[in-house]
Amino acid sequence: MDELTRYIAEHPYFAGLSAAELAQVCRMARVRHLGHGQVLALEGSPCEEVFLLLEGRVRALKTSPEGREQVVRELQPGEGFYLVPALDGGPLPVTTITATRVTLLSFSQEDFLFLLERYPTVARRVLVEFAGRLRRLAALTGELALRTVPQRLARLLLESARAGRRMTQREMAAQIGTVREVVARALTDFERRGWLRRRRGIIELVDVRALQRLGLGEEV
């Protein structure tokens, strides 16, 4: 089995397709191996391709009206992206750049729409993924609307201390809907204020009251 066929056969979207059907999907897909720092597509462009990330991580960036780029998400293996613009025909909402070496599958927009129409099981799996994303976004929207990143991080740290949890900075970022760099900056700020102390592999919460007040949105 060649590399492309193996990736397609193992991808959850295409589970259950017959050998002939998988062969048809393979004819439409490309497997791509890219190094760190490669631009995949630019915000505002028309959608030409849909990507399914297999290995590595991809950063999604948005550009402010002043031209400043901000990382808004870090895409993980297993995630697909540019599915929404492929479906609605709108412009790409974000620029995507590889954050590590990556392996991904790509389909032209036309071929991806054809696959959804041709194979209802694929369409259903894409819909299930969309439903999951909608649920997570709805939950996150409330948090984002009501609380800032430092407030969300303070709450997460207090909950984690209570639960005796161990987390990487990337896991913290995923939980509060931001990226690792922003978490790292907020932790440094908390440390500077004397609210916590970082040692090798340990975050000690020193000023629990200040973190509680921040988590509740009070002035600290």
């Binding site: 760190h36 290995e55 590595g56 991580r57 993980q76 293996p77 954050a99 590590t100 070496r101 990556v102 392996t103 740290l157 984690s160 201390a161 005796g164 949890r165 161990r166 987390m167 990487t168 900075q169 990337r170 896991e171 690792r180 102390r197 970082r198 592999g201 340990i202 975050i203 000690e204 919460l205 020193v206 629990v208």
Partner: peptide, 19 residues
Amino acid sequence: CEDICPTGAIALPFAIVLA
């Protein structure tokens, strides 16, 4: 190393504890 790893094979977890 955690940041650059393409497969997520390296993790640097932090234990979150009260002082």
